[in-house]
Lab assay of single mutants.
Amino acid sequence: VEVSPDIYQQVRDELKRASVSQAVFARVAFNRTQGLLSEILRKEEDPRTASQSLLVNLRAMQNFLNLPEVERDRIYQ
């Protein structure tokens, strides 16, 4: 799965849209901590040159964001 270069903005938009914390998003989207998500968003590494471990996390976030909005909102509950 190709990771979109605007994945970082997509995540920020989703945090605002759903009014969820980084901690909640990190847990449900890719089963990691708020600290890691914060670092990923701060660095904004180009997905095309990202490490394998970062790509795994970015893909998981993208797959989560590809779910229908209704389903994502249900998962946040």
Results as ranks from 00 to 15, higher is better:
residue 29 A to S: 13
residue 71 E to C: 05
residue 59 R to Q: 14
residue 56 V to H: 15
residue 37 L to R: 01
residue 57 N to G: 06
residue 16 K to R: 07
residue 30 F to N: 05
residue 75 I to S: 12
residue 33 T to D: 10
residue 3 V to T: 06
residue 5 P to A: 15
residue 75 I to R: 12
residue 32 R to I: 06
residue 74 R to E: 08
residue 38 S to D: 09
residue 74 R to W: 06
residue 35 G to A: 11
residue 21 S to V: 04
residue 22 Q to C: 05
residue 61 M to T: 06
residue 2 E to Q: 07
residue 59 R to K: 07
residue 47 P to W: 04
residue 4 S to F: 15
residue 50 A to T: 07
residue 19 S to T: 14
residue 31 N to Q: 09
residue 28 V to F: 04
residue 48 R to N: 14
residue 75 I to A: 11
residue 60 A to W: 04
residue 10 Q to A: 14
residue 8 Y to W: 04
residue 13 D to P: 02
residue 50 A to L: 05
residue 1 V to W: 03
residue 41 L to K: 00
residue 20 V to M: 04
residue 36 L to K: 15
residue 15 L to R: 03
residue 57 N to D: 11
residue 50 A to C: 11
residue 38 S to E: 12
residue 58 L to C: 02
residue 63 N to M: 13
residue 32 R to T: 09
residue 58 L to A: 01
residue 66 N to R: 13
residue 23 A to H: 13
residue 48 R to M: 10
residue 37 L to T: 03
residue 42 R to N: 10
residue 28 V to P: 02
residue 42 R to G: 10
residue 33 T to V: 03
residue 8 Y to T: 01
residue 16 K to Q: 13
residue 63 N to P: 01
residue 38 S to I: 09
residue 67 L to W: 07
residue 43 K to P: 01
residue 43 K to T: 08
residue 4 S to G: 11
residue 44 E to P: 04
residue 72 R to M: 00
residue 68 P to D: 10
residue 46 D to Q: 06
residue 52 Q to L: 09
residue 7 I to N: 06
residue 28 V to G: 14
residue 77 Q to H: 14
residue 34 Q to E: 12
residue 62 Q to Y: 04
residue 18 A to K: 15
residue 53 S to L: 08
residue 57 N to W: 07
residue 19 S to H: 14
residue 74 R to I: 08
residue 3 V to F: 06
residue 31 N to V: 05
residue 27 R to L: 11
residue 77 Q to I: 12
residue 2 E to W: 12
residue 68 P to H: 05
residue 70 V to A: 12
residue 69 E to I: 08
residue 30 F to W: 03
residue 52 Q to I: 14
residue 72 R to Q: 00
residue 32 R to L: 06
residue 59 R to W: 05
residue 61 M to P: 00
residue 45 E to M: 06
residue 49 T to N: 11
residue 37 L to V: 05
residue 27 R to Q: 15
residue 62 Q to V: 07
residue 5 P to D: 07
residue 10 Q to L: 14
residue 76 Y to R: 01
residue 55 L to N: 04
residue 30 F to I: 06
residue 38 S to T: 14
residue 37 L to S: 03
residue 19 S to P: 11
residue 22 Q to W: 11
residue 9 Q to D: 15
residue 15 L to M: 14
residue 73 D to P: 00
residue 18 A to H: 06
residue 22 Q to R: 11
residue 19 S to R: 15
residue 48 R to Q: 10
residue 25 F to K: 00
residue 17 R to E: 00
residue 64 F to M: 03
residue 12 R to L: 03
residue 27 R to Y: 06
residue 11 V to W: 01
residue 10 Q to V: 06
residue 46 D to W: 04
residue 74 R to Q: 10
residue 11 V to G: 00
residue 29 A to V: 12
residue 5 P to W: 06
residue 9 Q to F: 08
residue 69 E to A: 09
residue 32 R to H: 14
residue 31 N to D: 06
residue 51 S to M: 04
residue 74 R to D: 13
residue 56 V to C: 05
residue 74 R to L: 09
residue 38 S to C: 08
residue 39 E to N: 08
residue 73 D to C: 04
residue 58 L to Q: 01
residue 51 S to D: 11
residue 74 R to M: 12
residue 40 I to L: 10
residue 29 A to M: 06
residue 52 Q to K: 09
residue 56 V to P: 09
residue 34 Q to V: 06
residue 26 A to V: 03
residue 36 L to T: 13
residue 71 E to D: 06
residue 58 L to S: 01
residue 40 I to F: 06
residue 5 P to Q: 11
residue 48 R to V: 11
residue 17 R to Q: 00
residue 29 A to E: 00
residue 57 N to F: 09
residue 60 A to H: 14
residue 48 R to I: 11
residue 70 V to P: 14
residue 76 Y to K: 00
residue 57 N to S: 11
residue 40 I to D: 01
residue 53 S to H: 07
residue 74 R to N: 07
residue 38 S to R: 13
residue 12 R to W: 15
residue 5 P to M: 10
residue 37 L to D: 05
residue 61 M to H: 01
residue 59 R to S: 11
residue 67 L to E: 09
residue 19 S to D: 15
residue 34 Q to K: 08
residue 52 Q to A: 11
residue 70 V to Q: 14
residue 10 Q to W: 06
residue 21 S to Q: 04
residue 36 L to F: 04
residue 2 E to F: 15
residue 68 P to G: 09
residue 33 T to L: 03
residue 14 E to Y: 03
residue 70 V to Y: 13
residue 72 R to C: 01
residue 28 V to T: 11
residue 56 V to F: 11
residue 76 Y to H: 02
residue 20 V to E: 03
residue 70 V to I: 11
residue 53 S to M: 07
residue 9 Q to K: 15
residue 38 S to W: 06
residue 33 T to K: 05
residue 19 S to F: 11
residue 35 G to Q: 15
residue 21 S to M: 03
residue 50 A to N: 03
residue 49 T to F: 13
residue 14 E to W: 00
residue 25 F to P: 01
residue 62 Q to E: 08
residue 58 L to V: 04
residue 26 A to P: 00
residue 71 E to G: 06
residue 2 E to P: 13
residue 6 D to C: 06
residue 6 D to G: 11
residue 35 G to C: 11
residue 55 L to Q: 10
residue 34 Q to R: 12
residue 54 L to G: 05
residue 7 I to S: 02
residue 33 T to N: 06
residue 16 K to I: 13
residue 61 M to G: 00
residue 2 E to C: 15
residue 77 Q to F: 11
residue 22 Q to F: 10
residue 10 Q to I: 09
residue 76 Y to T: 01
residue 38 S to L: 10
residue 34 Q to W: 06
residue 54 L to T: 14
residue 62 Q to K: 13
residue 43 K to G: 07
residue 4 S to D: 14
residue 14 E to P: 00
residue 26 A to E: 13
residue 62 Q to M: 07
residue 35 G to M: 14
residue 1 V to C: 06
residue 34 Q to G: 11
residue 68 P to T: 07
residue 40 I to S: 03
residue 52 Q to G: 13
residue 56 V to W: 09
